[in-house]
Design a protein around this nucleic acid. Structure first.
Lengths: 197, 197, 197, 197
DNA sequence: TATGAATGAGGCTTCATTCAT
DNA sequence: AATGAATGAAGCCTCATTCAT
């Protein structure tokens, strides 16, 4: 078995266990078993469990960015571009529910807290995640200049745009609602309504 | 010391420790110390740590509902009532940051998952939380009938309304932005924009 | 059972296991079992296994100092005082072979290395061990002034005095020789011969 | 690369790692890395890590004996021969500090204990170490017959002669003193003083 | 009622050794 | 002969919970 395979098996096992049972339900022994390797093998691929957790998070952020980038056309109208991104991220979340759950677990955990602190202190090289934010940031900046979106601080624009998306994705994944393409588009448009001037 | 005092001390200690250090940083011994009681005493007031965690959550939901109820006038226009609630909940969160952090920790944890499962299965008697939801539900139902808010499933209306609020509160509490009354009102109005037809 | 009893049981168990099987043969589980307590109990009395190891060493040094002090008369001739100390320490070692073995294990271990480093850096408050050294130091200083012992740097005087004592004690304890009072006295006198001018 | 080269590299790597970091700091992986070979290769040259450790010890004893033999003249006076050996071994130790440290580590370890037990039980063929002892033994025997050294059991004579040497070497290597040729000679003479009648 | 010492299961990690390549 | 990935037993430590006082 190639080296990358086992690394991938471990990441996948971690994704599944953490997404379904939380960090609490993902001890090293369980991760290893789920991946079909011995416990000690984890440490050939990751310095520690913490590193495994964080690297998986980075990996997932990378995947999302890649997904969002595809089909994004910088020369379209702002509204269209926003809808493309909002619909794209929502669809990504609901078709990759394990990843969504993992990311949510991560954000509300000591790992996520440390991650935010590192970001604040600039302890990380520009990652894919940052680039993803940059697309939005650029979009919002452009919208502000053209006076098509509300004159609010950047973080609040993120909150208005992302807050409902995340919340909707969670409700779908938990089974409280069942989204279809029409609903997804309506949600995205409602988000735009909250942003546009 | 009256019986309820110690119970209250334990709840408060749990709130503080979980909010600031996460569940990970709130072992029973630390909770007891923070409350100024012995570790064993926890079990005279709560069946288990899990029960303590869940009861605190219920208690906090109750407090929020009480706060939102005050000043709520059912005979005002829908938009005004919505803004009252949105502004109220946002202000409550940022002035009770420990409670907000606790609730966020709770939602993303095995406790929160179980809690949601119980709600789905109807394993809980109608709680304050349910009553709080009822206010919104009633408001949204009325808005749907009057055709002033978008024709979307109820859970999605919740997401559009609450999603940004929670996200904004988090950013404020984490220090990424600093809200003032004007901003709070703008946020609430933006949420209304996403709801209204 | 009084608090100090269990602490004492743990120290004694550690002494026995380390002396007879080395640090390698004294895992926490074995120490706890030997002491008749659960493994977790160790951590109610000692911050970590390392601390247990180091505190036991300090305790043993204290006992030796106490033993040597008894009967020591500062107004006797230097030679008599030296013989008193040399005989005393040798007798102590061979009647407390576990303690002797433990101390030897300790010195040749990461613990002992760190301990020496701390002493060099002055990271420790003056301990009993230091006071014990002080008796010798004072004795040697006096001997140097009176020109009855060889004019050598202080550490070398220690080596000449202690080196054989430790070596003899080891051979006795390992069973290569069997000391009696007459031999002990001869050894002490031989050490004096190497010191005296 | 010739077979013996890798064996030698492994022995040297073990010497360096154990001397500087103790057995605790010399896992097989580190030894292999230091030697520039793969971990599994160790087992083509040594049955187990334990065997590697013990064979290195035997090797080092052999080197010391060889060094001491050189220039030793059996027809010199006893005192001169003793001084030659004492000075020789002390100089060897302080110019081969890694070897000295390794030997000290070895003596105070499960390996050393087992080694001594084997010696007692006669489980080993006569090794270089034994031959080294023989020189001393012969020297002491002769001294006893001529009544120039104290009438003490053989092991005690070893202790009086070697005890200070080892102790002095340790203090030099640890940096507590700095020996020069004059001091070394004084030390050797002091040792003789403790032996001579 | 309250205490807090004691428990022991279970978590993360290391490392000597094996074996397919 | 050599490699080094994989193994899994064993080590240290934490913590929810119990129970004698």
């Amino acid at each position: 078995m190639a080296r990358d395979d086992k690394r991938e098996l471990l990441l996948q096992a971690t994704l599944e266990l953490v997404a379904t049972h939380g960090f609490h339900g993902a001890p090293c022994a369980a991760i290893a078993e789920q991946a079909g390797v011995a416990a000690g093998t984890i440490y050939r691929y990751f310095e520690s469990k913490d590193v495994l957790i964080v690297e998986l998070y980075a990996e997932l952020e990378g995947r999302i960015t890649t997904a969002l980038m595809s089909g994004y056309k910088a020369n379209q109208p702002i509204r269209d571009r926003f809808l493309h991104l909002a619909i794209g991220i929502l669809k990504y979340f609901i078709t990759h529910s394990l990843e969504f759950k993992y990311i949510e677990q991560f954000h509300n955990s000591p790992y996520g807290t440390a991650h935010r602190r590192d970001n604040l202190l600039g302890n990380t090289e520009s990652s894919d995640a940052v680039r993803k934010c940059d697309i939005y940031k650029q979009l919002f900046t452009e919208g502000l200049e053209l006076q098509v979106i509300k004159n609010l601080p950047m973080p609040l624009l993120f909150d208005l745009a992302f807050g409902p998306i995340v919340s909707v994705a969670r409700n779908h994944i938990l089974g409280f609602i069942r989204l279809d393409d029409a609903l997804i588009e309506q949600i995205a448009e409602a988000c735009w309504d909250s942003l546009k001037r």
